[in-house]
Design a protein around this nucleic acid. Sequence first.
RNA 1: GCCCGGGUGGCGGAAUUGGUAGACGCAGCAGACUCAAAAUCUGCCGUUCGCAAGAAUGUAUCGGUUCGAUUCCGAUCCCGGGCACCA
Length: 926
Amino acid sequence: MEYQFRDIEKKWQEKWKAEQAYRVNNDFSKPKFYVLDMFPYPSGAGLHVGHPLGYIASDIYSRYKRLKGFNVLHPMGFDSFGLPAEQYALDTGQHPAVTTKKNIETFKAQLDHIGFCFDWEREVQTSDPKYYKWTQWIFLQLFNSYFCNTEKKARPIADLVKKYETKGALPKTGEPVPGRHFTAEQWNNFSEKEKAGLLMKRRLAYCGYGEVNWCEALGTVLANDEVVNGVSERGGHPVVKKTLRQWYLRITAYADRLLEGLDKVDFSDAMKEMQTNWIGKSSGAEIDFEVKKPPLSPPKGEGTALKLRVYTTRPDTIFGVDFMVLAPEHKLIADITTEEQKKAVQDYVGYVNSRSERERMAEKKISGVFTGAYAVNPFDGREIPIWVSEYVLAGYGTGAIMAVPCGDERDHKFARHFTIPITNIIGSHYNGEEANPTKEATLENSGFLNGLLMKNAMEVAIRAIEEKGVGTRKVNYKMRDAAFSRQRYWGEPFPIVWENGIAYPLPEDQLPLILPEVEKYGPGPDGEGPLSNIKDWTDRSLETNTMPGYAGSSWYFLRYMDPENDKVFCDRRVSDYWNQVDLYIGGTEHAVGHLLYSRMWTKVLFDLGHIGYDEPYKKLVNQGMIQGSSRFVYRVAGTNKFVSAGLKDRYETNAIHADVNIVDGVELDVDAFKKWREEYTAAEFILEDGKYICGTEVEKMSKSKYNTVNPDDLVMKYGADTFRMYEMFLGPVEMSKPWDTKGIEGVHRFLKKFWRLFSDEIKGLIVTDEAATPEELKVLHRTIRKIEEDTERFSFNTAISGFMIATNELNDLKCHKRSVLEPLLVLIAPYAPHIAAELWELSGHRDSVLDAPYPEFNAKYVTETSKEYPISVNGKLRTTLNIALDAAPEDVEQLVLDNEVVQKWLEGKAPKKIIFVKGKMVNVVI
RNA sequence: GCCCGGGUGGCGGAAUUGGUAGACGCAGCAGACUCAAAAUCUGCCGUUCGCAAGAAUGUAUCGGUUCGAUUCCGAUCCCGGGCACCA
């Protein structure tokens, strides 16, 4: 019998579906294992070969864990709210719900062809009202909570209200600050609006104001990647910053716990580092500098002198400050700029306003403008010029820095560029050419800090600053609160009603607040979202913003556990059972966004007692990105002639993307190319060696580059098992690599060869019940060890080569013995479930291979008594020698010295040293 | 610019803790089977020199540590991901 993969796969996929073989029950008596994939956004382009990489890895691991006796939860769903569907709706008028539904159907069909063991009964879709009801509910939890700084956790906002009513909000020490502190009596006399305003300052989901990319011509807010060089990607219209009312999540309150939590989870060091850097905790001081400027206009305010507050992580360098830099958005600029500098400053601020934050950070060119004003160093009275430059960002620290050019590279370049004199406070550590950010230098030119080692001066400086009353110790975070609203249609509506400028939560029993139908998806007035165009919506005073893409994905791992529950988002007993995600697989592109948000949501739900753990993902594996390998044809300029890559330099050509699916390796199928597009029907070709060779380039996989490969085609041609194994055989899951279909044949050949161990084309089943030889058992047990170890460490590519080696060896041994082959079927079942099931059945089993007992490794079959030792002379391999593993070191040395190759290299001399590492190697040093 | 990752034959990759570089597969070459093709099987396959035995060289580049470095350290170059409204 031949390996009829199409029939086999169809048969088993239907059978497993009918038997509900992948149905997972909340069976609390069994040990559980939770494997989760980052769910996809169902784009209109369908699944390409990059998507399933992580899913295949998780599927293999899930099936493996199931064989090992675990109750495995391995669900799948769709992150179905998002911008592309909305843009498509804008362009075509089709409702996003309709296109999304269609896309999801395509995705599901494609996924099913690959033979995943998803329990579709547990599918979630973030745009489904049954799901987003609970997203809205969790939003209300966030809205109705505050972060208690004493207990370092979320608590109901009602507790805070009670505290305000009975104790007010007074400082622990010092004078109360008006607007911030108040007594209980004051609180009770506040108007409702005043109370709401104060509570808003503490809520975990709160309303504030923030800048967005505003495009007047399109009348809408643009995402960063929709803005290119200051103009909109579509249409090239100018984009400016606009301040809009926005919702935020107070993720900064959780900064410390998000940092500490990293110690409890199994993420890669790189991932932890990225998150740590994103949170960007630093400690230093905020220092106030008095501003001195020619009194051209009377200072605003109550006659108090203007003060410039900076944040620095290096208060020890206070005497090295040579200038100040304000972010172009800094409020003080208008007040301190002198008349002479006004024009220059305005021009500069205008220029910066047209640039995105990304552009500003990536800018190499040094730019800035002098305000004309000076700040006074509180310790030595030096007057320090105040500049404005885009390299200081408004959102970080106080939006102003004290620049110490001898110790900071950017400050140094700035000083050089504008010829600002540089004070050296670190003596010989500064060479006058580049800054030295050392903390080990002894301070000079530094007043009372002179002679101190910088790292010791830090503390002394902070104390002096505090004693003098010119500043305070301060911990800062680079991370900002997360903007949580979008002026868009296709997202979760906020369950918020506005009355007299006060945000009121919708009662829980009115959830879900259903996203209404709209006639057009265009923006509303004044940058508001499309919902503001709906009279019924605005009549009810509902919030017109919607939630961002990451809302639904911040908690979906919980919903899979209890997807049908309409009483709670997830029953507590169920979330206690399934607990944390044991293995989470997804791309690094989500390193800081999604992962931090979902970690925060989990912490809030934990604090409020809704779940029993405060980290969602126990272990995270990052799959690499599959890049596209594009193919190019070269059209001779102005003709319909195409020249092969090797000859293209002889002509003037334009490179054109050719569909990778009509190219075999690099050889173009010219007939298919002619049929590909009408304009190429009459194409002529200039060949080399009778072939048309394409150019190649590695790019992002995308429809427009014609480098996407649809898994359906490959599954059709080679079968799901081949496809699954080939994706894994490409290389380590964590690594990015370009897709190349060439090579899939090898894996397919392997499966055919594996099949032939069991079944002969003519004779059918050829499995015998003969006893296995020691040699065969050695192959088997080596393979058991290899597959188990490699599967455990997610090294699927080497596991597959292990299967290939075993198959080759058993084929050479002509082994068709049941006792050797059947365990192999169980080993391979997670990787190639269909062929495993078919052969399992063929060998006479009535039970399912999905739940067969996993073979046990026995070391006695693989123990060796001797080893082919590499013998090196001066570290260079010269020969090998077979030596018993239990040989005594002296005997080994003698054997090696007696060897004629070693003798030759010794040239009669005695060796200086012989290094013998048992079981590894021997090195003779001459 | 900043943060993170990667760079090994013609190609994808292996080498798990510093110990035989190139497992396994693709492509290529030679051969067997066949009327032929497909399928299958056998052998060769980093580069240079050599009939061969063998030698030299080789893991992005340069330098260091070590008896020994793809692996550790320092510097440089190139590629990919992220940088807060793509998901």
